[in-house]
Design a binder for these strands. Structure first.
Ligand SMILES: [Mn+2]
Ligand SMILES: [Mn+2]
Ligand SMILES: [Mn+2]
Ligand SMILES: [Mn+2]
Lengths: 219, 219
DNA sequence: TAAAATTTTTAGGTTTGTCTAAATTTATTT
DNA sequence: AAATAAATTTAGACAAACCTAAAAATTTTA
């Protein structure tokens, strides 16, 4: 298909937005991409002629099957590079997204195939997000919000909702990462902050907004 | 400085051309970059305003110190990625140039620093070309043309002049690579082709154009 | 040295991706 | 149901990186 960096970024952003809202609107995409609504409209026309989106003016838009397939290929590249940056180069998880944002646009098939093999065909990226396979299939990861974890029951951190550098830096500070074993000691009614206990660490308290973005699976 | 991919490609090409000819002319750069002379002139104006080249119209041009420094940073990224592709991902040496041509434009300093460390601070790339250090200093590699190697004396292949995929594929076929131990058995007067002997391989004959592009050091 | 050939630059366009400001359309209030 | 507000699109520009064709400068040849 041969897409520009800009087209790829639009497709990826539409994909992420339509996971939440089913139909995507111009303003939210503009905000997501740090651009203006008028620019978005221009690009929507182009993506429509390339038959990657469903789009009727004033009615919103979303990726069609071909568009979703394309998005998953780009997401696969992004997440494989993130694994590389963390597991091979030793980057912290809060530093890799920006770099992967560039690397994901290098489109050699052979490169991604060999990178995947080299990394040991990882199923999740450093933030716990699933890596689409070569055919764009996403492994389903069974997980729940930390708030759903019964008191005193141990869960394993599986992914993070908000992945801003600010959030990730904070979790790093708390010592919370993918794979961390976590237990809820107590929920405080006042502000819904919770006291948690991690292995080999003293108990600590995290706020509701933080807790809401942590996902776990049990045992 | 923040340069576009296109600007970086121009700078790198000027660098390579001025190694040979000292002063570079519009047409040769256009040919090198598979573009037109008019496009080159446009870019030269831009590079001049960015103070990266010395350029007087109709008189040719070359990189100034700042331009050379910039070129060496890009070449460093290119060659480090080539090392990665060959030594970590298992690519053949004739397949890595095109991919590195894209990867070299990902400009995170931290990335290149960590990649360098990860690769063990290599001094040469898979084609035997020296990798500039962080400060843009090039290690000097003492070598000579294969034709200068005395008969029956063993040399070690250190680099290749023509690095087109066609040439590299051919050398791969002959089993000639960087580090190969090579001896000249005989030079044929007729066409200056030479019979060579590599370790653990039967003797074979290579043409003059091929031999002229092979460089060795003795011992 | 004058004509011819070559090289380089300029003039004027195109495409991609962006923008601001104005016009439309749709949604929300009175 | 108007009026108002919000969202979206269009109109018109702009910068980057290209292009072709024509003009200008330089070099070569006769
Ligand atoms: Mn990106
Ligand atoms: Mn991620
Ligand atoms: Mn390049
Ligand atoms: Mn190389």
């Amino acid at each position: 298909m041969n897409l520009s960096t800009s087209e790829e970024n639009y497709i990826k952003s539409i994909y992420h937005l339509q996971l939440v809202s089913n139909i995507v609107n111009t303003n939210s995409l503009a905000k997501e991409l740090n651009t203006k609504a008028a620019s978005v409209t221009d690009m929507l026309k182009k993506l429509k002629t390339k038959k990657l989106i469903q789009y009727e003016r004033y009615y919103g838009f979303k990726l069609n099957d071909k568009g979703i397939q394309t998005a998953l290929i780009i997401i696969r590249r992004h997440r494989l590079w993130e694994v590389f940056l963390v597991s091979k180069l030793g980057f912290d998880w809060d530093k890799v997204h920006i770099i992967a944002e560039d690397l994901e646009h290098v489109s050699s098939m052979e490169l991604i195939k060999k990178l995947d093999t080299y990394l040991g065909r990882p199923k999740i990226d450093p933030h716990g997000d699933p890596i689409p396979d070569v055919n764009g299939r996403l492994p389903v990861i069974k997980q729940m919000n930390l708030f759903k974890l019964p008191l005193k029951k141990t869960g394993v951190v599986s992914s993070v909702g908000n992945q801003s550098p600010q959030m990730l830096e904070m979790l790093k500070h708390y010592g919370i990462g993918i794979g961390s074993q976590i237990k809820i000691n107590k929920v405080f009614d006042f502000d819904k902050s919770i006291e948690i206990k991690l292995l080999k660490q003293p108990a600590c308290i995290i706020s509701e907004p933080v807790a809401k973005n942590i996902f776990v699976y049990d045992e």
